[in-house]
């Protein structure tokens, strides 16, 4: 917590100022009374939102309940709305109105395993959402005119004034040849983009496991497991990095081609990167025959 003489502080997680009277940040729910936990390598651990912490948006509130698989319990006021994927609904009061918000590019979304329809909920009333894995609910307030890029399937909910689009991630590799050729998307086929229009908005993500953030300086680079990315600032660049370790006597033929290789997501600043501690094991696939732009190291 960074305190000033006027009893305001800037939350180190959502980077927004507010008064220092509460025990948790009113914008993102992060506790304010904990010490900054930063690893020697510079990763800052995002502390879990305290059980029953409240986040304010518009005239409404969001209360985070539970610690293993937390739920986001929205108390929606009359004119406020949120949208979310239909499979995240845990319970709702009958007074909440739910309507479908169709998505363009339906066929591509189906191929990518993304929901075809988002639901929009309007108050008054309570509605609660949760994802189906142990981890953390992360609240990201988005300032007017700002954007956040999120890896697919991490989205939990957003307030009605946050615009949602998606685009091809542009991160892919192909393996095999001829009829056996396969295209893989280590980061997912699409990336979700959330942009606050007409005022500040609130975005909620679900991060399986623990989440860590790092603010990269201009030109600073980091390699991460592609499936561990949770979100990033739009200013952070990314591309593939292929690494072929020296395997000594085994450094020939198929061993050098794919058995020991590492497929990284190389990211560079300036901007914030967030990773989760649970990620998918890299696919055991054949030799890479083509790929999206990538750097390459053969040790």
């Amino acid at each position: 917590m960074t305190t000033t003489e006027t009893s305001t502080y800037t939350c180190r997680f959502c980077r927004l100022p507010s008064d220092a009277s509460g025990t948790s940040c009113p914008n993102c729910g992060a506790p304010v009374d904990v010490k900054s936990v930063v690893s020697d390598s510079g990763w800052q651990e995002q502390p879990a939102v305290k059980d029953m912490a409240r986040i304010q948006f518009g005239q409404s509130t969001c209360q985070i309940e539970g610690t293993y698989v937390p739920t986001a319990d929205f108390g929606l006021a009359g004119d406020d709305s949120i949208y979310f994927s239909h499979h995240c609904v845990l319970w709702t009061e009958p007074t909440v109105q739910m309507t479908a918000m169709p998505m363009a590019g339906g066929w591509n979304r189906v191929r990518a395993g993304l929901p075809l329809v988002m639901l929009e909920a309007r108050g008054p009333g309570h509605i609660a959402l949760s994802d189906d894995a142990p981890g953390e609910v992360v609240a990201i307030p988005i300032q007017h005119g700002h954007s956040v890029w999120v890896r697919e399937h991490r989205f939990l909910a957003a307030t009605g004034n946050v615009n949602y689009t998606w685009q091809q991630s542009g991160i892919w590799i192909t393996t095999g040849a001829g009829n056996d050729q396969e295209t893989h998307f280590p980061l997912g086929m699409f990336i979700d983009i959330f942009h606050a229009e007409g005022g500040p908005g609130l975005l909620l993500l679900h991060s399986p496991g623990n989440m860590f953030i790092r603010d990269l300086r201009q030109g600073e680079t980091i390699c991460i497991q592609p499936s561990s990315l949770v979100y990033k600032d739009p200013t952070v660049g990314m591309q593939l990095h292929l690494e072929y370790p020296n395997a000594g006597a085994m450094n020939f033929g198929w061993h050098s081609a794919f058995s020991y290789r590492q497929v990284w997501l190389r990211m560079w600043g300036p901007g914030r990167v967030a990773v989760q501690s649970v990620f998918e094991r890299p696919e055991n696939s054949g030799q890479i025959t083509s790929h999206s732009p990538a750097t390459r190291t053969v040790w």
Partner: peptide, 27 residues
Amino acid sequence: NVKTGLMRHGMYLAEMTGPGRVGIQSM
């Protein structure tokens, strides 16, 4: 009153009517 998915599946919820306790799990 919403349809989901490519096949326009209906969305169903369990309506609980009191009196009494209801327990839920988040996962």
